[in-house]
Structure formats: structure tokens, C-alpha cells
């Protein structure tokens, strides 16, 4: 990981903790317990008192899921342009500039290769801090490349989704990224290369309606909000309140939309078990050196 990323992480966590007097303590949104930040870091931002899953920074999922020193970032330079000359209250290029400065990244997804408990995998993690993790041409291209690489190198693919959905500033270009990523997943599926989707809080819109729901298995983190339409839009449509827990990962599990809700600290072990079941005695994700 570059110094740039680490610096950016610092900036970002400062920005996030605006309401906390000194950065050492954080209040659990689940139970209200005041949590020591160092302790939270160690527990991957899961509340020690109630098990509430606080947001975990995108790059930390790489540390959480992959073996130490196995990560090799790919396509880091792929970046958004402004194909429509889009402007609302601000110009799209200005929004991009701010997002790049805040995150130290070129777009809203990190992609690369690594090993998960010894198994070679291709991993993408969406970064909500970059324009709400929205799906634009750059993300579509990076995910498509990562999945094509997984297909040709026969490595399992994992995508951690956390996104408000499509990137409106790229309109139809953005919409077509749903088709683009799904088209590559069709190939992966035919070739028997596993794809696991993990939805963390929140996962919505065009991301849910494409790769995030197309895993051989779809997993969710406890309490994650996952859906197609956002709660506000649904409320407006039906003209009433939403049922308790609507669109939570547990709700989706009950309705048959997720295979499992997995506690964050058990994710790596669970994924390892699943991938071994998929890959053992097959020519996929064969343990060995990552770089060929």
C-alpha cells in the first residue's frame, strides 16, 4: 500500500469523525456505548458491546480478507472522465477532483489480486467515500478487467459492494456498466470460476441490480441495508411507513435473497471454507504464488 493511500485514510477518518470530540473515542450507533478507537481498530469496527458493524474503510477490507503481503493492486490508474459535460450545482469534474483529493484514489473501487488463506483470488472493494461508491465507467472497466483476469487466470473473484448505486453524472454510460459487468459474469459462470458477492452497508441501485446480486453466493454483513430502490423512494411510492428492519441483510436473508449474513470477523474463514468447497480438486484458485 502506498503512503498516498495511508495519508488519504487519515484524512478520510478525520472527516468522518466530525461529531466526535477527540478522535480517540467513538460512540456505537447500535447501543450508544462509547468505544475506544484503538480497540475498534483491532475488532475491525465491530462494537465489542453489541456486535454492531460500524463502517470499515474500503482498504481495510483488503487487510481483513487477504493474507499479509499478498496484495497487488491492479488498474489503479483507471479514472473517470466527464463524457456528458455534466453539471448540476457543480461540475462533475469538480466533484471528481474533490473525491480524488479526499480518498487519494482515482475512482470508487479498489481492484487487485491477492491470497485468501493461501487461495489466489481477485478482489474488488467499492469505496463509499468516493462519490458514494457510485458505479461509473471507470468502476465498470476496473471490475470487468478484474473479472476477465479472474476468468483467464482461473482465480476466484470476490467483490465487496458498498454503494448508493449508479453514477448519475454519467447517465447512460453508467447504466451500461451494469450490463458490462453482468456480461463478464456470464462468462465467469460458464467457465466455472467462482464469484462471491459481499454486500456491506449500504448497497443500492445499479450496483445491487448488477454484480452485487450475481454471486454464486451472495453474502451480507449484519445490519447492512441492501436494496434496489432507496427507503425514501419506496416510502413516497407507497405513501406509508416501511416495516421494521426492511431491506436489512437479515430481512433479505429471511426473504431468500442472501445465502448468509456473516459477522465481519468471521468473513475470511467463511470465504475460505466456501472457496475451498468450490475449488478443491479443480483447476481454479490453485494455491501457489500469485504472480506468474
Amino acid at each position: 500500500m502506498s503512503w498516498l493511500n495511508r495519508a488519504a485514510r487519515g484524512i478520510q477518518s478525520l472527516a468522518k469523525q466530525k461529531d466526535v470530540p477527540d478522535n480517540l473515542w467513538q460512540k456505537c450507533p447500535g447501543c450508544g456505548e462509547i468505544l475506544y478507537r484503538r480497540e475498534l481498530e483491532r475488532s475491525w469496527y465491530v462494537c465489542g458491546a453489541c456486535g454492531f458493524h460500524l463502517p470499515l474503510d474500503a482498504v481495510r477490507y483488503i487487510d481483513l480478507l487477504l493474507d499479509a503481503d499478498s496484495w497487488e493492486e491492479l488498474y489503479a490508474g483507471v479514472t473517470s472522465v466527464d463524457p456528458l459535460g455534466f453539471r448540476d450545482s457543480r461540475r462533475y469534474p469538480d466533484r471528481l477532483r474533490v473525491a480524488r483529493r479526499q480518498t487519494g484514489r482515482e475512482d470508487a473501487v479498489i481492484t487487485g489480486r491477492g491470497r485468501l488463506d493461501g487461495l489466489p483470488v481477485n478482489l474488488a472493494v467499492l469505496d463509499f467515500a468516493f462519490m458514494g461508491g457510485s458505479l461509473g465507467s471507470a468502476m465498470g472497466e476496473k471490475i470487468a478487467r478484474l473479472l476477465l483476469d479472474a476468468s483467464s487466470q482461473r482465480r476466484s473473484a470476490i467483490v465487496v459492494s458498498r454503494s448508493g448505486g449508479a453514477r448519475m453524472q454519467e447517465s447512460l454510460f453508467s447504466l451500461m456498466q451494469m450490463a458490462k459487468t453482468a456480461a463478464v459474469l456470464a462468462r465467469l459462470r460458464e467457465e466455472g470460476v467462482p464469484f462471491i458477492s459481499l454486500c456491506v452497508n449500504p448497497t443500492y441501485g445499479g450496483v445491487t441490480a448488477s454484480f452485487a446480486m450475481l454471486g454464486d453466493l451472495n453474502l451480507g454483513e449484519p445490519g447492512a441495508m441492501i436494496g434496489f430502490a432507496g427507503p425514501r423512494v419506496i416510502k413516497q411510492t407507497i405513501g406509508g411507513d416501511l416495516p421494521e428492519g426492511f431491506q436489512s441483510a437479515e430481512f433479505l436473508l429471511e426473504k431468500g435473497q442472501l445465502d448468509q449474513v456473516v459477522e465481519r470477523r468471521r468473513l475470511k474463514a467463511t470465504l475460505a471454507t466456501i472457496l475451498r468447497w468450490f475449488c478443491e480438486d479443480r483447476d481454479v484458485s490453485i494455491p501457489g504464488p500469485v504472480r506468474e
Binding site: 472522465v81 465507467s137 465498470g140 458490462k180
Partner: peptide, 8 residues
């Protein structure tokens, strides 16, 4: 579909 998108 792979060709759809504008990025650098």
C-alpha cells in the same frame, strides 16, 4: 458491452 464506457 466491454467497449461501453468512457475513462482514461
Amino acid at each position: 458491452y466491454l467497449a461501453m464506457g468512457e475513462w482514461t
